[in-house]
Design a protein around this nucleic acid. Sequence first.
RNA 1: GCGAGAGUGGCGGAAUGGCAGACGCACUGGGUUUAGGACCCAGCGGGAAACCGUGGGGGUUCGAAUCCCCCCUCUCGCACCA
Length: 859
Amino acid sequence: MGKTYNPHEIETTWQSYWEEHKTFKVAEDSNKEKFYLLEMFPYPSGRIHMGHVRNYTIGDVVARYKTMKGCNVLHPMGWDAFGMPAENAAIESKTHPAQWTYSNIDMMKQQLKRMGFSYDWDREFATCDVQYYKWEQWLFLQMYERGLAFRKKSYVNWCDSCRTVLANEQVEGGLCWRCKAEVSQKELQQWCFRITQYADELLKSLDTLSGWPERVVTMQRNWIGKSYGTEIAFTIEHTDEPITVFTTRPDTLYGATFMSLAPENPLALKLSEGTEQAAAVRAFVEKVLKQDKTVRCSDDLEKEGIFTGAYCINPVTGYRMPIYVANFVLMEYGTGAVMAVPAHDQRDFEFAQKYGLEIKVVIQPEDSDLNPATMTAAFEDEGRLVHSDQFNGQKNTDAMQAITAFLAEQGLGRKAVNFRLKDWGISRQRYWGAPIPIIYCEDCGTVPVPAEQLPVVLPEKISLEVLGRSPLADCAEFVNTTCPTCGKPAQRETDTMDTFVESSWYFARYACPDYDKGLLDGKRVRYWMPVDQYIGGIEHAVMHLLYARFFTKVLRDLGLVHVDEPFTNLLTQGMVCMETYQCENCGWLYPEEINQGNCTRCERPVQIGRTEKMSKSTKNVVDPEKLIATYGADTARLFCLFAAPPERDLEWSDKGVEGSYRFLQRVWRLVTEHTALLNDAAAVDWHGVDEADVKALRRKTHQTIQKVTDDIETRFHFNTAISAVMELVNQLYQFDVDKDTSPVRTAAFREAVQAVLLLLSPMVPHICEELWHQLGNTGTVFTAAWPVWESATARADEIEIVIQVNGKLRGKIMVAADAPEALIKEQALTCDSIQQWIAAKEIIKVILVPGKLVSIVVK
RNA sequence: GCGAGAGUGGCGGAAUGGCAGACGCACUGGGUUUAGGACCCAGCGGGAAACCGUGGGGGUUCGAAUCCCCCCUCUCGCACCA
């Protein structure tokens, strides 16, 4: 009898072994196929949560599997360490963000090590390390030189709770992505990255990302939002100044009867200046700008506007179009001005009705006749042009081209594309981030910090009392400097960079984290990049994943990387959730304790709670620490892999965890109760072995190897891989290994047990490592070769063939695996169990699906 | 509103044109045990049966959870995009 399964002892033993032997350290090796596996690095919030456990377990399985398959696997880990939680926590607990961050890193690193992940810890870095952000500042300067980093004043998203600016990608439904507070618009000077310069390429090369989930590609495509249309200039009456609009419907130009401006459009105030409208327009604009994004963009917000007092002229009809300011016009899309065609745009229609503006039909449907006086809604479908001079009678889809061409000829407009994507505002008015390396000099203006003066180090002594400006602004030693150009006193930029900047290039830095001569070591980067498999949450579909793609293209154009795209394959794993049920009598229940809405214990109806994402904000959180303390890391890993396929949400179940633990004990006993016998097993010649149960076991072993390999390699379906191994283990329990002392019997048993350990080792490495060694193997299971299946052994001699009559299952026969088609058909037709179904009937067709079934069609 | 994905036992989930419900959880019975737990074995969609069953309805096919059309529900993303 072997000793009992003690996960803690085994796990700490092997974790120390791996650490001492630097088992997971990698270096470039041109003789091996490289494989770069990366999971999205964590923010050091304090402790790891179940989402981390799941994400990193999935990654670890792939890393270990690829290593066993002979690849040179890069599997690094680090910390996305700048950011506001550190600053907020520091203010609250009167510590320093750096101290808070680094102590969290220590804590979480211990937790990750306790999970037994196969990271090359020698490559670890935190993005708040000076050596890291120094190169980021250097990159900023390169981008500044090329016009990719620039400063501009504009309306930006402002989160009053975080007291900082947010990029468009960081506003979710009008709320701050981080704190869920309402976002308002504020006019600010800030630094931007010209991501729009790469808009076309970012869109086009989405097509090359065949290893990405379609969902993410679509989200990015929509986010970039390229639309084709026409730019048209309308001259403002009594001036030479034009208002330019972007429209995707140039075919409706003859029906444009007024102009709508976004409240943010500077023309709004300018045009009304000096008119009797001025005060009213100003009041309206102020009212709209004060509204937060949720209110302003809500569905049921009434369309409102105000006349500016000015007119512009429709270039093709000469119509005198009143210029309005309208609350539904967006400054950030197109030009912030819209030509309004009430007959053919529902919003304009409603607006025109409200303010008594003319509705002019210029497109008629084929089957009816629109009358502006009786229309109840805009007509937005296809039709033929009317009231449109030489374009009358054309199909509107053709007229789009024709009118655009006409405008171009007359110098009144041109073909244009418009992107929804906006430049990335990166200034953040907070302390805990990478300083922007810019100096402002009264004489020389904006001066970049010379590269040799980098890094611009964050000052340590700082007051973090935040008042809507960067705390750095109140730190005299930081702000006051001398101009690098003229040497006179000058001031530093005090905003810091968005933390998404750090995560936009960290993946490349892992190739050469120690490199001190530049941002990246070309040689090593060339070996490791791109990331072959990236794994992380879907929540980064347009933020991080878009920025990282942008940076990769910038780095490429700077000659620093050789790839166009950073991540060849992307796996987006689902969230960890917990469904909550409550019985008034028995308290909290698990899903398996409920039968048709009733509590299985007391039969009373239960209250069903929401399925909630496990996060700090909900109370029903499972702490991985406790899970490990109770069952060990292997059980935690196994449960995460077994309960659901990776891309789906994982529903937590305490009972499911127990089941995982039970399976590991079952594996443990299988080996430890037969150690002596297993160690006696010798290599045998399998030729001529014909004991049925031995053959069956070997068949199952090889079938399992094939199934598990396929599930991991092509689909990441670890749940079905595990269930396949469970089946093999069940069969091993049924196998009577002590029936006789035949060497073939023990050899088949050992072969199967070894397969179990090898196949499970990427998923539950500790227990497999321990048992692997108890079987007398040396070295680590991590570097043992992945087992190979023999198709001849996996193939059955006899197979079951299902017989269908008119599509219904009517019988089954056993046939030799290599039986000829005609014989199988004949056996099917003569088989007793189906006679009653085919007798006295005309057989029309007999279909054979090799290895599966015979389908008989009768009449 | 637009786009994407999903809907299968009491529960998590298998099966992607070929035996629906693998594997696990829960449950039931048996074995073992002084007893309980643990463990081992068996059963486990509905129905007495014929049969009926993969959100609902239609279609293609010898054969549909799987493919096509319509509808319903849920989740996610975008959303006054001119």
